[in-house]
Amino acid sequence: KDKDLLKGLDQEQANEVIAVLQMHNIEANKIDSGKLGYSITVAEPDFTAAVYWIK
């Protein structure tokens, strides 16, 4: 199951987060929520590491 990592990002921010996570071998998903911006989700086992790397 995926957990929400970040919400309300613009496309550039979302792409930067995806890139950082991929560099650390964390699979992440970018979801277009329309006017609400983009959300990033990661698998539950990767959540703690993902939070660490996006600081």
Rank of each mutant, 00 (worst) to 15 (best):
K1F: 10
K1T: 09
K1I: 11
K1Q: 11
K1V: 09
D2S: 13
D2K: 11
D2L: 13
D2T: 14
K3H: 06
K3T: 08
K3R: 13
K3M: 12
K3I: 13
K3A: 07
K3L: 11
K3D: 03
D4Q: 15
D4W: 15
D4H: 14
D4E: 15
D4G: 09
D4I: 15
D4K: 12
D4R: 13
D4A: 14
D4C: 15
L5R: 01
L5Q: 02
L5F: 06
L5N: 01
L5C: 07
L5M: 04
L5W: 03
L5P: 02
L5G: 02
L6E: 02
L6D: 02
L6C: 14
L6P: 02
L6Y: 06
L6H: 02
L6A: 06
L6Q: 03
L6N: 02
L6T: 03
L6M: 10
K7C: 15
K7L: 10
K7M: 11
K7Q: 11
K7D: 07
K7R: 13
K7N: 11
K7V: 13
G8A: 05
G8Q: 04
G8F: 10
G8L: 05
L9R: 02
L9E: 02
L9A: 02
L9M: 04
D10C: 13
D10K: 09
D10L: 08
D10Q: 06
D10V: 05
Q11Y: 12
Q11H: 11
Q11S: 12
Q11M: 13
Q11A: 13
Q11D: 12
E12Y: 10
E12L: 10
E12T: 10
E12K: 12
E12V: 09
E12R: 12
E12A: 11
Q13S: 09
Q13P: 03
Q13N: 04
Q13T: 12
Q13K: 10
Q13F: 07
A14Q: 01
A14K: 02
A14G: 02
A14Y: 03
A14H: 03
A14C: 06
A14F: 03
A14T: 03
N15T: 06
N15K: 07
N15A: 09
N15H: 06
N15C: 11
N15R: 07
N15M: 09
E16K: 13
E16Q: 14
E16W: 15
E16A: 14
E16N: 12
E16D: 09
E16S: 10
E16T: 11
E16Y: 15
V17Y: 11
V17G: 01
V17H: 02
V17I: 14
V17W: 13
I18Y: 05
I18L: 10
I18S: 01
I18T: 03
I18K: 02
I18A: 03
A19M: 11
A19V: 06
A19R: 15
A19N: 08
A19S: 08
A19W: 12
A19E: 07
V20I: 14
V20N: 05
V20R: 08
V20E: 05
V20T: 08
V20C: 14
V20S: 04
L21T: 02
L21R: 00
L21I: 01
L21G: 01
L21P: 00
Q22E: 07
Q22W: 12
Q22H: 10
Q22M: 12
Q22P: 00
Q22A: 14
Q22C: 11
Q22L: 14
Q22N: 09
Q22F: 11
Q22K: 14
M23C: 11
M23W: 07
M23A: 12
M23S: 11
M23P: 01
M23V: 07
M23K: 10
H24M: 05
H24D: 01
H24F: 07
H24A: 06
H24Y: 09
H24I: 05
H24L: 05
H24T: 02
N25C: 12
N25D: 08
N25Y: 06
N25L: 06
N25K: 07
N25I: 04
N25R: 07
N25G: 15
N25P: 00
I26M: 02
I26E: 01
I26L: 03
I26Y: 03
I26F: 01
I26D: 00
I26T: 02
E27N: 13
E27F: 14
E27I: 14
E27Q: 14
A28D: 03
A28E: 00
A28Y: 10
A28F: 10
A28G: 06
A28Q: 01
A28W: 07
A28C: 10
N29F: 12
N29L: 11
N29S: 10
N29E: 06
N29I: 12
N29H: 13
N29P: 01
K30I: 15
K30F: 08
I31Y: 07
I31R: 07
I31V: 11
I31Q: 05
I31G: 02
I31D: 03
I31C: 06
D32Q: 08
D32A: 09
D32C: 13
D32P: 08
D32K: 10
D32I: 06
D32H: 11
S33T: 11
S33C: 15
S33A: 12
S33G: 15
S33N: 15
S33H: 15
S33K: 15
S33Q: 15
G34R: 03
G34P: 04
G34Y: 05
G34I: 03
K35V: 13
K35N: 11
K35I: 13
K35E: 12
K35W: 10
L36V: 06
L36M: 11
L36A: 11
L36S: 11
G37H: 05
G37R: 06
G37S: 05
G37C: 09
Y38V: 05
Y38P: 00
Y38R: 00
Y38I: 09
Y38G: 00
Y38S: 01
Y38Q: 00
Y38M: 04
Y38K: 00
Y38H: 03
Y38W: 15
S39K: 13
S39A: 09
S39W: 10
I40S: 00
I40L: 04
I40K: 01
I40N: 00
I40Q: 00
I40Y: 00
I40D: 00
T41W: 12
T41D: 02
T41I: 08
T41N: 04
T41E: 04
V42F: 02
V42N: 01
V42R: 00
V42G: 02
V42L: 04
V42I: 06
A43D: 05
A43L: 07
A43F: 06
A43M: 07
A43T: 06
A43G: 06
A43C: 07
A43I: 04
A43R: 11
A43N: 08
E44M: 08
E44P: 07
E44Y: 09
E44C: 08
P45A: 15
P45K: 15
P45N: 14
P45Q: 14
P45G: 14
D46Q: 06
D46V: 06
D46M: 09
D46C: 09
D46Y: 11
F47T: 02
F47H: 05
F47E: 02
F47C: 06
F47W: 13
T48P: 12
T48S: 12
T48V: 12
T48K: 12
T48N: 13
A49H: 06
A49G: 04
A49T: 08
A49I: 08
A49W: 11
A49E: 10
A50F: 04
A50C: 05
A50H: 02
A50K: 01
V51C: 14
V51D: 06
V51K: 09
V51P: 00
V51H: 07
V51G: 04
Y52E: 08
Y52F: 11
Y52L: 06
Y52R: 07
W53R: 01
W53A: 08
W53S: 01
W53H: 05
W53C: 06
W53I: 11
I54S: 04
I54W: 09
I54C: 05
I54M: 06
I54A: 05
I54F: 05
I54D: 01
K55T: 14
K55L: 14
K55N: 13
K55C: 15
K55D: 09
K55W: 13
K55I: 13
